[in-house]
Write a protein that binds this DNA or RNA. Structure first.
Lengths: 209, 209
DNA sequence: ATACATTTAAAACGCTTGTTTGAATTTTTA
DNA sequence: TAAAAATTCAAACAAGCGTTTTAAATGTAT
C-alpha cells in the first residue's frame, strides 16, 4: 500500500480536526505530509473523497473495538449506564495507544462532520452509522426499557454533544480556565472529567416527548 | 441609524449561524441582504469586524434579559437547578418573539464562536463573558457551595456543549431521526427536550477533579 | 442651495483555493 | 534489460475570496 496515501491521510486527519474540513487547505496538508500537492488528486480524486477517506479510516479504528466491548457487555447481567460510558471512554483511550492525542482528534472529527455536514458525509454516515452503533442502541434499549428508541437517540446525541464540544473547544476552554482561576487542566484530563457528565446525560429523567 | 447596516447584520447573522464564519462569503451575504458588496467594508471596515458586530448584537439581545431574570432568582429562597435552566431556556425563547428561529440562530453562533475562534473573537469574549455570565456563576456557586468555581465552569460548558451541538446539528439530527423512526420533531421542539439534559449535566455527581 | 454622509455600481487588485496538465522519474512487470 | 505502469513534480488553470478604488447617484442636514 502506498505510503504517500497514508502520509496524506494522517496529515489531513490532524488538520481537519483542528481547523475543520473547509478551512483546511490541500496545500498545507500536503506540505506537512511532505508530499506533492497533486498527490491528493492522484490518490483520492478530490478533496471531498479525501475527507471521506479520513473519516472512513478514523471510524474503522474506533468502531470495531467499541462494538466488541459492547457485545461483551450485553451478555452480562445488571449492566449500569456507567458501564456503557466506561466502555465508550475506553474505546477512545485505546486510540491513544497508537498515536498521541488520537482520541481527541477522533472526537473533533466527529464534531466537524456534524457541524460542516454538506451532504456527502451525511449520506456516508446514514449508511455506516447504524452498523457501528447498533450494539450501543441495543444496550441502551435493554437498560432503559421504558424509553423508546427515539428518546434514546436524543440522549445519546446529547451526551455526544458534550463530548464533542469539550473536545473541539478544548484549547479555548483551557485558556479560559487558566485566565479565570489559574487552572492547570491539560487536554487529556478532559477525558477524565467526561464520564460523570455522560452518565448523567444518559440517565436524565426528562419527562418530555 | 443606517438600514443598510442592519440588513447586512441580519443577513450575516443567518449566514454565519448556518455555514460558519469562514465559509460565509461577503458576496452571498450582501446579495441576500440586497445591498452592495462594498457596503460591508464601508460600514464595518472588514469581515472580521462584521463578525464582531454580529456577535455583539446577538449577545446584547440575549444577555440583559438573562441577567435580569437571574438576579431576580438570586433573591428567592430554595432555588433549584431546574429554575436556572428554566430561566436560561426562557431567555432563549424570548429571542423568538422578535424573529422566528432566533434562539436557534443564537446558539449556533455561540457554537461557531467556540469552534472557529481565531483570536479576535476569543479576546472579545474574554472581555464580555464575565460581565454577561457573572450572575449565572454566582447563582451556581450559591446553589452548590461544595463545588469550587472551576468545577462549576466545566459543568456549565458541558451543558452548553449539549445545547450547542443539538442546535448546530439540528438539521442533520432531525433528518436522521426521521429516517430511523419516522420521527416528526421540528427544530423548535429541541428546545423542549433540552431542559432535562441541561439540569442533569449541571447536577452531575462526578467526583473527579 | 450648499455641504456632507450614505449608497450603488462596476471594475480591478492580490491572494488563496481545488484541480488539471504534461513531462520527468521511479517502480513494477515480463 | 527493456518495456510498461505507476508515481512524483513543477507549473499553470479557472474560480472564488476579501478588499480597494473610482465614479456616479442618492439622501440629509445646515
Amino acid at each position: 500500500m502506498s505510503q504517500t496515501k497514508d502520509k496524506i491521510i494522517l496529515s489531513a486527519q490532524k488538520q481537519f480536526a483542528e481547523l475543520g474540513f473547509e478551512a483546511s487547505s490541500l496545500r498545507l496538508i500536503t506540505k506537512n505530509a511532505g508530499v506533492n500537492l497533486a498527490a491528493v488528486n492522484y490518490h483520492f480524486g478530490s478533496k471531498k473523497m479525501l475527507i471521506q477517506s479520513v473519516m472512513d479510516r478514523s471510524i474503522r479504528q474506533f468502531a470495531p473495538y467499541l462494538k466488541e466491548k459492547l457485545e461483551q457487555l450485553i451478555l452480562k447481567e445488571n449492566v449500569k449506564t456507567a458501564d456503557i460510558v466506561e466502555v465508550f471512554i475506553d474505546a477512545l483511550k485505546q486510540l491513544d495507544e497508537q498515536s498521541d492525542e488520537q482520541s481527541m482528534v477522533f472526537i473533533k472529527l466527529i464534531g466537524r462532520s456534524y457541524a460542516e455536514s454538506q451532504g456527502h458525509l451525511k449520506r456516508y454516515f446514514v449508511e455506516n452509522y447504524p452498523e457501528a452503533l447498533d450494539a450501543l442502541l441495543r444496550l441502551m434499549r435493554q437498560l432503559m426499557p421504558s424509553l423508546d428508541d427515539e428518546a434514546i437517540f436524543w440522549r445519546l446525541h446529547c451526551a455526544l454533544g458534550s463530548l464533542v464540544f469539550l473536545s473541539t473547544s478544548a484549547d479555548a476552554l483551557i485558556e479560559m480556565a487558566e485566565a479565570e482561576f489559574n487552572s492547570h487542566v491539560n487536554k487529556q484530563h478532559i477525558l477524565d472529567v467526561m464520564p460523570g457528565f455522560l452518565e448523567s446525560a444518559l440517565t436524565a429523567n426528562n419527562n418530555e416527548r
